[in-house]
């Protein structure tokens, strides 16, 4: 046995051990909440997505990809350093909702993104996803903190005041408040039909869904046990301070 083969054998041994460690880490990672998820709807071809991947790239590189973005087909994941500590951040593609369910178990914090310039037209879809996020798994039970980040504030500021009522509302009330009102209204409708939904064939093993809020009262975000923060900003303009603040709080 010459030096190179024994070197290789050693390397292989190390590789096997490391692989084993990774395997164990991944196995126990099922129950371990170690990632911050970026969640939100995708666009439909005519209108644009909320900007999840844009946010992740901004966090990672402090700039936007030179040639732009297309809809994501897979989860984007990156390690971001917050206060000297590395945090895994995952951007869940809006077009592949089937991925969300499993990833929610890994969330120690959730950044839920909406496009505040189009909240009026898309509040329903936004609210549906938000409802899924809150009621699936143990997000509410474990009080996973959530930031509702109202992106694209740049588009609101630049639009002329008479464009549409929705935009004027947003400017007067501040993104957070208007978005909150729209989402509350839709969530009220969604949760009542969610409890009364028809049974699901083959759903016996489906994760139990929680009821959102209090049954006797009209839904308010205050009824959610989690710490919810509403904030607005613009990924494109690099204005993501609320996100950084949220990540710092969550990892602390």
């Amino acid at each position: 046995m010459d030096l190179s083969t024994s070197g290789f054998a050693l390397l292989a041994l190390v590789a096997v051990i490391v692989l084993l460690l990774i395997y164990i880490a991944a196995g126990s990672g099922k129950s371990k909440r170690n990632a911050i998820l970026i969640v939100g709807r995708s666009g439909t071809g005519e209108n644009k997505s909320v900007g999840k991947t844009a946010l992740l790239k901004q966090l990672k590189n402090s700039e936007q990809p030179k040639y732009g973005l297309l809809p994501s087909l897979v989860v984007n994941s990156a390690e971001i350093t917050v206060n000297g500590k590395p945090v895994r951040v995952m951007d869940v593609p809006g077009m592949v909702p089937s991925l969300l369910e499993d990833l929610l178990d890994r969330a120690k914090g959730i950044i839920f993104m909406v496009d505040s310039s189009e909240i009026r037209d898309h509040a329903r879809r936004d609210a549906e996803i938000l409802h899924d996020v809150l009621t699936q798994g143990s997000i509410m039970k474990e009080k996973i903190p959530m930031l509702i980040f109202c992106n694209k504030s740049d588009l609101i500021a630049s639009s002329s005041p008479d464009v549409s009522l929705g935009i004027r509302d947003l400017r007067r009330e501040g993104c957070g408040d208007a978005v909150k009102t729209y989402l509350e209204r839709e969530l009220q409708l969604i949760r009542s039909s969610a409890v009364n939904a028809v049974e699901t064939a083959g759903g016996t093993k489906q994760k139990q869904k929680e009821f959102l809020g209090f049954e006797e009262e009209v839904f308010r975000f205050e009824h959610v046990p989690n710490k919810l923060t509403f904030a607005s900003g613009s990924v494109i303009k690099g204005n993501i301070d609320p996100v950084q603040k949220f990540m710092a709080e969550t990892t602390a």
Partner: peptide, 24 residues
């Protein structure tokens, strides 16, 4: 697959397309 465009060349003006065809 994550959605980042690494490189793109545009050579003619697109007409009559709402949204981006690549998106579609």
């Amino acid at each position: 697959r994550g959605g980042m465009v690494l490189w793109m060349g545009k050579f003619e003006q697109l007409t009559k397309v709402s949204g981006s065809p690549m998106d579609l």
